[in-house]
């Protein structure tokens, strides 16, 4: 939601977007689980031009000790953009935006992760953005959820995320960087797909009541597409040659 003017046609008369997609079509999504040997669980995602890797450690001892909780485990998430992930070098120190996104990803994962089974421990999720396009928080969340499942952390449900938005007065699924910069609204949504509970809902922009409802519905439809791809990635990693 940069609010920038652009010469680019974001949506043509045939309902085709600037990157050739239909309004209800997500970008190309590829997820691979178990890409890192040294982490307890990991995942790599390509979501359009986003390239993101997530690594999970734990449950493990909490350091510093004062953060540990005798009743439950704790979840710590770091979302970090590599300096080369954007066109202008990004300073590697955590920015306000990265701190915020780390927080919202953590809060989107918390309802799913059964930390109460591991008191006095921590589960650490590290998300590295290798290449950023629009919607990196949703893609990061998708990768983090797969990495957690890959690490064998007990979860009530998966977490799947996808953004919807408003571009050229039309509600569209999965907005890209250009649409994010010049569009009218951006709404990242994350759900627990089996229970249908929403774990992340943000909105940048202005929508009418009806547009808001349609935007959520569109985002949830995108989450379900992502969920199928997440399951396929986990099945490829763990069931190739086993089970049904």
């Amino acid at each position: 939601m940069g609010g920038r003017d652009t010469d680019m046609v974001l949506l043509d008369a045939n309902g085709i977007r600037c990157d050739g997609r239909r309004i209800d079509e997500p970008r190309r999504i590829m997820i691979k689980a178990g890409v890192l040997h040294n982490a307890n669980g990991s995942a790599y995602i390509e979501f359009g031009d986003n390239k993101i890797v997530a690594g999970v450690f734990g449950p493990r001892d909490v350091h510093p000790k004062h953060q540990s909780n005798a009743e439950t485990g704790i979840l710590r998430v770091r979302y970090h953009m590599q300096p080369y992930s954007v066109t202008e070098r990004k300073r590697p120190a955590p920015s306000r935006r990265e701190i915020e996104i780390s927080k919202v990803i953590k809060e989107a994962l918390l309802p799913a992760v059964m930390l109460e089974r591991f008191p006095r421990t921590a589960v650490d999720v590290f998300v590295e953005i290798l290449q950023a396009d629009g919607g990196s928080r949703c893609a990061a969340l998708d990768a983090a959820a797969v990495a957690l499942a890959d690490a064998g952390i007990p979860m009530r449900d998966m977490v799947s995320a996808c953004a919807a938005g408003k571009v050229a007065d039309t509600i569209v699924l999965d907005i890209n960087n250009e649409e994010d910069q010049a569009g009218q609204a951006d709404m990242p949504v994350a759900i627990m797909p089996n229970s249908g509970k929403v774990t992340l809902l943000q909105l940048d922009g202005v929508l009418t009541r009806d547009e808001y409802r349609r935007c959520i519905e569109t985002g949830i439809a995108g989450c379900k597409i992502v969920y199928d791809i997440q399951k396929r990635a986990l099945a490829e990693r763990h069931f190739s040659g086993a089970g049904q």
Binding site: G58, M114, G152, P154
Partner: peptide, 24 residues
């Protein structure tokens, strides 16, 4: 009854459990 792990369903007597394929 819902699975909380990536694994294989195992049934013994009247108990349903999941054998996890990863984890600590």
């Amino acid at each position: 009854l819902v699975s909380s792990a990536v694994g294989l369903v195992s049934v013994s007597d009247d108990t349903v459990s999941v054998i996890p394929l990863s984890g600590k």
